[in-house]
Amino acid sequence: MDQRQDAPQIDAVTGQSTTGHEWDGIQELNTPLPRWWLGIFYATIVWSVGYWIVYPAWPLLTDATKGVIGYASRADISADMAQLKAQRAVQAAGMADATPEQIKADPALFQIAMAQGKAAFGDNCAACHGVGGAGAKGYPNLNDDDWLWGGSLEAIGQTIRHGIRATGNDETRVSQMPAFGRDGMLKRDEINAVANHVRELAGLSTEPKANLALGRKLFADNCAACHGDAGKGNKDMGAPNLTDAISLYGMDMASLTETIANSRNGVMPAWGGRLDETTIKALTVYVHSLGGGQ
């Protein structure tokens, strides 16, 4: 490559001066950066010096220079969080002072409670009760009108606060269905008779060879105390209504036999200590509004 350095010349085509460099006969036009560009460039350098002084900039061994105005992005976040907290406190204040009945009656509070309740439900309840409270076998559907322990705002609040058969909570809802088979209280054919009778109570078909008379007698002796003579259940004891269209564990013979033989004693934790009062109130209103509230 033939490289030369000549004095700058004026290029005939563009009328611009060349840099004087020449590579194999090709010359380079001298096209300096625009003045305005350079001006801004130098201005940013000057600006950056001021920036170093004013804002945190230079890393030190364990820290960084703080800057004279003491700016810290962490402080911004703290301020934002404090603002958010204050904002929530205003809403929470209304919630804290109101009873669930008052919340339900006040459209503004109701809206907050529903939003807050929905979020809290998703975080804490949906694992068992399903998204939207759809329920599953052994975990009640909270949308329907059938309640084990009552569907009033008060009853729902009590259940959430203290749980069901929750250990270490004195006010928890307790009842115990005996395991009639496992504990030897009823024999195999007796359990079959009771199961058939329960299906009879619910208006479902019974087995042709079922001893319904025996089942009726055994039901009256062993079950009616909690479930009632007609099997309508008792909310004080969490004894389900056996005659309606909803069942928690299934009304087929196999499920019923298992229920009677081994009992079912579902457990729900007490949320009183884990969630704050306002959240529990919001959850109460939310669950009550899913569709089954009484």
Partner: peptide, 18 residues
């Protein structure tokens, strides 16, 4: 339409959608 549950059976056997 509600995503979950898609429908709810009520105690009298009627079906409800939300």
């Amino acid at each position: 339409h509600d995503r979950a549950p898609l429908f709810v059976t009520l105690s009298d056997g009627s079906i409800r959608n939300a």
